[in-house]
Amino acid sequence: MLPTSHFDTDGFLRNLSDWNPQVAEQIAMAEGIKLEPSHWEILELLRTYYVEFDSSPAMRALVKYCALNLGPDKGKSIYLLSLFPGSPAKIGCKVAGLPKPDNCL
């Protein structure tokens, strides 16, 4: 378990290099999410996005990126909301160990 000092007040990792799958499980648990393969698929995509675009996606970009890479069935808000309820871009980034997206609604 990473101590709370490694997280900011919103629960985002302060240092991106602290992330590993165990840390993801820890953050997800704090969000009340049990990570399944369908979650991991999105988390990996989020981390790929971050490397490709040097930024965390807002919801709009995440939906489109999922559609492009995982197909139209998964490129939908409703699908992402079922995995990361509330605010998929924000919570997904948090679990993926990425910074909080700017402009997330």
Binding site: E52, F53, P57, A61, K64, Y65
Partner: peptide, 15 residues
């Protein structure tokens, strides 16, 4: 600093 070029590359994802 954040990579401006790579961030610009995400514009199509924001339509």
């Amino acid at each position: 600093k954040k990579n401006i070029g790579r961030q610009l590359a995400s514009l199509p994802l924001y339509d």
